[in-house]
Amino acid sequence: MIGIIDYGMGNLYSVSKALERMNYNYVISSSPEELSKAKGLILPGVGSFKDAIEILNETGLAYFIKETVAAGTPLLGICLGMQLLFEESEENGISEGLGLLQGKIVKIPGVTSSGETYKVPHMGWNELENRNPSPLLEDVDGGHVYFVHSYYATTTDQDIVLASSIYNVEVPAVVGKGNVFGTQFHPEKSSELGLTILRNYAAIVEERVS
């Protein structure tokens, strides 16, 4: 069973429906007690980093996530949920993230080095370029996925960048280290390719426990 963390800022419906279509059991909950029964977690998220981390801290979910991940349970962050895995974000002033991955969340500049402007948010289908092998990217080699975001992750730990997409800057699109994973795009909205990634995550969850 996969636990979808409900902290009031998620696109829970589409994530859960995608799991349902693949016949995976899930529970949507805001209660650490309920969620601790799950073999793996998904942290969705739409909205601002600052609001999200405040809620996670206040509800004790941040502590729960860190403890559970330290104990080896797999975690997949989606979109804002992926950004929350990093150390800090500059969205609406600096705020601290969960610190599970090394790096910072910064604004997509919207202007090239030669001064040309381009549109932010990064919205639409962009191509994945595989960077590092991972079980999350089993049977995935390139292809298009659906992004909607204005901030992106920067990291000096290139080993955690499993795939990236170019939007003037190089946007880490799939990240991962140990049992912590994240996708900047929405796999649940990325047609077959996105569902493959969710299926791979579900397989990781099953494997770790058995």
Binding site: Y13, S14, K17, A18, E20, R21, Y146, V148, H186, E188, K189, S190, S191, E192, G194, L195
Partner: peptide, 8 residues
């Protein structure tokens, strides 16, 4: 639609 569609 949301239950069946995997695009936005």
């Amino acid at each position: 639609v949301a239950a069946e569609l995997a695009i936005p």
